[in-house]
Design a protein around this nucleic acid. Structure first.
Lengths: 263, 263
DNA sequence: CCGCTTTTGTGCACGCTTTCACAAAGGCAT
DNA sequence: ATGCCTTTGTGAAAGCGTGCACAAAAGCGG
């Protein structure tokens, strides 16, 4: 029953903690905004506020990159922008392919933030033959058959999966086989990949469910009135006579379309 | 310089760790799939594999919900689906509004996974008057002017922001003022909200940047050849003579459109 | 009715993250 | 120059999350 393919063991590459890496883009965005307003320097306090984090955390994060600040003054905005960009690998160009040009895939293709950060949409790929050649966001959609060729010719190492869940693993396998080593997955599935391949997941449904949890919690504690009667246990665990949903509204398997997608 | 509005202090509501809550939707999805195949029971090992986590972790997670398993046998699928659904608050209906019907907003509106999980798109809202009345995913878009009325009349407590970054905070404020207490933010901005309001963020750009970091790391260590010369320091920190990007390709401020959006 | 097998539930230890608190360091005014 | 004020950089401590390893249960066969 072993997965056969392992999951990244939270490597913490080269001393920079994963948690810090995840915040660097946040800092970078705040710094870029300051840079555009020609602000020369920022204190950790100001920048932390702009990024929505604690100032101590920010200073510690930056300390992993080196001592780029000046005591009594703060951080040089331009310099820090450069350093973080370099650390994140944004000083080079990353060709990216998007697989699955449905509603979401198209939206992703149109995303303006791609180019401005060193990412370049090298190709759009879809399995539907009727899509082939059709331009989306100015880029003609190519057929899945050419996936391997596209990856290799463009030296793509980052792939975005926006296909239905059913196709995701298969697409993933092909991407990996062709040389992709980083995947951003919008399909509501757990992808299994060989060691050395990074997968990050974006899932609207999961985010909403987490919000619902907290929402329910809020509603059930503060007011102490209005419904939310958690009583009435559904059925016995060993017996199999439990109705899944209160009503029968169960429109389809769900988990068959990526985070955002109609068909 | 104080933000004035606080961020959620990782409350860990009522004993269930935040990390566990974040995994419950994952388990639920795997369980739903099993349920559809009429599988009566699962062991923690099997379910963990399906959800892509460690079995010990899964068991510990479930232990926070109660003892719903049977030793020597495993977990009753239907029963567990019900329990997790209830815990996440999915046994009730959550009306949701989507603000900002651009490329991404439209994709979200078309998302099929909404209804199947207890979420219902109550309304689509956009600031563009020319959008008003136009049906998207079968729902007519309404104007921002009516935001408050819509929220109140439908008892909406969860809002999705898919506007450009510039409008996000303003929309957020109005949502909160109207009674929304949970927000899913797709705009690349840090939202500040009063205490008691939950915000979750989805940001394509950040995910890609994190991938790029690891990608660069991989490329710079394993092969030990091919470029990746980290030498050539850019400039002095105190002096302000650093060019931000290697080339001048800086198309726009970025951070002005939500995660996915053309205009 | 007993013992064997399976699988859960969890005590415990380890490592990562966050936060505090403060000494070191830089700049500026006098 | 000297001293004061500001802000960084970082030990150290506390808090979480993860995973191991195993005892406690439940079922089953003899």
């Amino acid at each position: 029953m072993a997965t056969g393919r392992t999951h990244r063991p939270a490597t913490r590459s080269r001393g920079i903690p994963e948690a810090t890496v995840a915040r660097l883009p946040l800092y970078l965005r705040a710094l870029t905004a300051l840079s555009e307003r020609s602000v020369p320097t920022v204190s950790s306090e100001e920048l932390a506020a702009a990024a929505g984090v604690n100032s101590a955390k920010l200073r510690k994060d930056f300390s992993y990159l080196g001592s780029y600040g000046t005591r009594g003054v703060g951080y040089d905005v331009e310099y820090l922008v450069y350093q973080i960009s370099r650390e994140l690998g944004l000083t080079q160009d990353w060709p990216v392919v998007i697989v699955g040009i449905g509603n979401l895939g198209a939206a992703l293709a149109n995303y303006g933030g791609f180019a401005s950060r060193g990412f370049r949409v090298a190709a759009l790929i879809d399995a539907d033959p009727s899509m082939t050649g059709k331009p989306v966001a100015g880029i003609p959609v190519q057929h899945t058959d050419d996936l391997e060729t596209i990856i290799e010719e463009n030296g793509v190492s980052i792939g975005v999966i926006a296909t239905p869940a059913g196709a995701a693993q298969q697409v993933c396998d092909r991407l990996v086989a062709a040389g992709v080593t980083s995947i951003l997955n919008f399909a509501p599935t757990v992808l299994s990949v060989p060691e050395g391949v990074d997968v990050r997941k974006v899932d609207l449904s999961i985010e909403l469910q987490i919000l619902a949890f907290h929402e329910q919690r809020k509603a059930g504690e503060e007011p102490a009135g209005e419904g939310a009667a958690d009583t009435a246990p559904p059925a016995a665990p060993p017996a199999a006579s439990v109705r899944r949903r209160t009503d029968g509204t169960d429109s389809g398997p769900d988990g068959d379309v990526p985070a955002v997608m109609p068909a």
